[in-house]
Design a protein around this nucleic acid. Structure first.
Lengths: 229, 229
DNA sequence: ATAAATAAAAATGTGCACATTTGGCACCGT
DNA sequence: ACGGTGCCAAATGTGCACATTTTTATTTAT
């Protein structure tokens, strides 16, 4: 045992995580072919391990696998992107409605604490951080319901939209208005869930409006560079 | 080639479907061990095929897999069951709110057509059919939004609750009131989504109330018998 | 020169043999 | 009788060789 003996399941998890993160961070452009052998070399593991991770990602709908043709980073159509945001919008409406009747003071506090962080990031012009915090706001909302199923769904949607965001670089998903988030929290604090729902609706409309159209891309990629860490 | 040459992916799909159906129909009791070799024999395919299907089901959260310990039909706790219904309740609230602003006459018609089928099944005392139709009602609702993401989530929740229903045999998920479904459709027709949401909420509350407590079971099973068809 | 056909190369998919881990059982000592 | 220890059988996990399919490159014919 050289360094970390690492039991098998841990290796699997690590392979999956590295691929997952690369997708999240937009390091793998849409359309990129994910060849098993090349990834295995880049990650320093056996092809079977990569295989498993790819199939897992496919089950999560994070990548596309076509039988006998391999795996690719999806290039979602404008329509599919719209569907993901629409789903999030609909789901959050349900969440906010539910929260209206059961939102503790402590949770309101942690929401407001989060808003502060968002404002700081916006003021510091830290785009990457802003994007992350902006997503976490919506996670915080659903987590407040303490329902694992719902939280999973939202995380699912966010992990998929992250790919989309990277497709449309300039689109300021980052600019995902802090003020609009704040308005939602305000409505909740005032015990007015219907307003919160309406505000959330508007918010998603704005986010969607900022999304522009796709340029289909398919460039060669240096996996070693991406996974060198 | 004896009968159906069946290309490989078709076989995979069939294995998955047969296991999936057995779970849906409650033929595999909670706690049942799903040994790879035994299932392979019963289904007449290689162990690897079963393996793949089991991992797929695990990714769907339809079964539990513990590393090096194999797969089992889950025995969800009362708390987990509550969470699934709660999630469905919350999600459907969002769906109904959204439907309020965009429900075509054609869809209302197909909903009412469905209600008729439900009533027929209830009158005929066909429990199995009633259960199935009752679930399909909620699928019909979300499908009306024509959003694949949302439809997937609902199907996900339903496939998981089916295991739970079979855990509590007597619990009349079947009795999932036809009248309550009808009331929801009525509210939608009247263009009163808030009432629809409230009715849906009550509906889920009633369904949950009918669920009783678990008896932990773990009996030996004859796979050949279950999969003989 | 274009297109069809064919052959070679590369990538994915599969079964099997073997390694690893787990669970049960007998044995032993207290 | 009880709890612990070690061994054996059984089940899961993994790497590898080979089969199948797709893609690319080359040749040939019109």
């Amino acid at each position: 045992m050289r360094r970390t003996p690492k039991s098998a399941p841990e290796i699997d998890e690590r392979v999956y995580d590295r691929l997952s993160n690369a997708l999240m961070e937009g390091k793998l452009r849409a359309g990129t072919k994910l060849a098993e052998h090349k990834l295995a070399d880049a990650l320093g593991v056996s092809r079977e391990r990569v295989r498993k991770a790819l199939h897992r990602l496919a089950a999560d709908r994070r990548i596309d696998i076509i039988p006998n043709r391999g795996a690719r980073v999806p290039s979602p159509s404008a329509e599919e992107i719209r569907a993901v945001y629409q789903a999030h919008r609909t789901l959050e409406a349900g969440v906010l409605l539910q929260l209206g009747t059961s939102l503790s003071e402590a949770m309101l506090a942690s929401l407001e604490e989060h808003l502060r962080k968002e404002r700081d990031a916006a003021r510091a012009n830290d785009r990457a951080l802003s994007v992350r915090l902006s997503g976490e706001f919506h996670i915080l909302l659903v987590d407040a319901l303490d329902n694992e199923e719902l939280s999973r769904f939202i995380r699912d949607l966010l992990s998929r939209s992250s790919i989309m965001v990277s497709l449309y670089e300039h689109a300021g998903h980052s600019a995902c208005g802090v003020d609009e988030h704040a308005a939602i929290v305000d409505a909740l604090r005032k015990g007015d869930p219907m307003s919160a729902v309406a505000l959330s609706r508007d918010h998603f409309t704005h986010v969607q409006e900022r999304l522009d159209f796709p340029e289909t891309v398919s460039a060669p990629v240096n996996f070693e560079e991406i996974f060198q860490n």
